[in-house]
Nucleic acid binder design. Sequence first.
DNA 1: ATGGATTGTTGACACTGTCAACATTTTTCT
DNA 2: AGAAAAATGTTGACAGTGTCAACAATCCAT
Lengths: 212, 212
Amino acid sequence: MAVKIQRKPKGAYHHPDLEHALVDAAIRTIHEQGVNALNLRAIGSQLGVSRTAIYRHFDDKSALLARVALEGFRIFRLALRSAVDEARKRGADPLEEMGSAYIEFALANQSHYKTMFSGAFGSWDRYPDLITEADGAFDVLLSTIREEQGTSRIAASHDPMRLAHIIWAGVHGIATLGMAGHLGPHDGTDGQLEELSRLHSRILLSGLRSRS
Amino acid sequence: MAVKIQRKPKGAYHHPDLEHALVDAAIRTIHEQGVNALNLRAIGSQLGVSRTAIYRHFDDKSALLARVALEGFRIFRLALRSAVDEARKRGADPLEEMGSAYIEFALANQSHYKTMFSGAFGSWDRYPDLITEADGAFDVLLSTIREEQGTSRIAASHDPMRLAHIIWAGVHGIATLGMAGHLGPHDGTDGQLEELSRLHSRILLSGLRSRS
DNA sequence: ATGGATTGTTGACACTGTCAACATTTTTCT
DNA sequence: AGAAAAATGTTGACAGTGTCAACAATCCAT
């Protein structure tokens, strides 16, 4: 497939690929100005298209945001997956590295991360694809835990699902509280939150190596 | 001080205590319909007052939300404090009981909790009182950790502030992900999330009793 | 090529936060 | 007590935004 023209040629009635362009523009805007700053009219005129053109591709604003979230989960899953694989290759702890990658993603894509998790698009039930994609990311964590239990690096006595929930909650908490500035001042460039995440992983894993 | 009349008497120009009435109405609306459903016009007419009367008591909508959050942190702090005291009296683990109380508060006041933590009111910097009140709630956790380290029930080798951040992040994560339905289906009436929080506490504390 | 499906446009509306200007009530000062 | 000032509440208006309805242009399959 040849490279697609990104901008609409002047005077053309139909945009070459408005749907993707809308998603890209939304992601960019969210990244640069936050979710709250996103408005459909600006997105439209940014693409040289009228303010309601979006409605031929998305039911409403929420649907666009859900799509943005979906793209986020896709990249997120790849990042987590690659962190685990890398760790295994290097003999590092996969869960600790995954936690670190989690924080790294959240910090590098703060508004995108918020779009994924702060209910900006309303109910998840309306977007089955989004649920599937989010489950895919979660599965990286869950399967890694199961594998670690298989090699007995962590106790097999705990329900892996509950462990996954606890670990997820921890890193998610560090990410969200950290971004809100509640875990001390930090500009996101220093690795302070990643360090906190590593400490979190080590304490948890230490607790999981002991008996029950 | 005598009991104040809550509703504005018909025809009265001045509301007896509009400021508190506004906060109460906002809290009630948020509790019943969520933060997003809150709008100033509805609040006004609900109190028999015009739509802009609020501006004599709050700079803007954000300021009202910040006040709602502040009230939340006050109640929150009391709940955490009392959970710790209760636990000590009963010989239970103070940190585990505090975690449980944390989840209980969040579940019983979901929208209020979101108002406190989801940045609904914009930047914290604008509301120094809010920061103070939130710090007060955090101090319940921090001081409890220090006390537990004093009695050596948890290792004193860790920075208590970092431990507080990690524990807080864990319960906050459980609360927010749980409310979003990400930790399995639950209606909030069963104690599923509280149970998860207890498991979380036990694993962490187990890890904190080991060396390092 | 032609008729229906797809995609984009314009006009309009409702909802909401907020400001300015004015009105009324309460408090303060002499 | 009376006047001035401060506090509190009201009405009118406006801007920003999401969304719908009706219409227009383009694309595609038969």
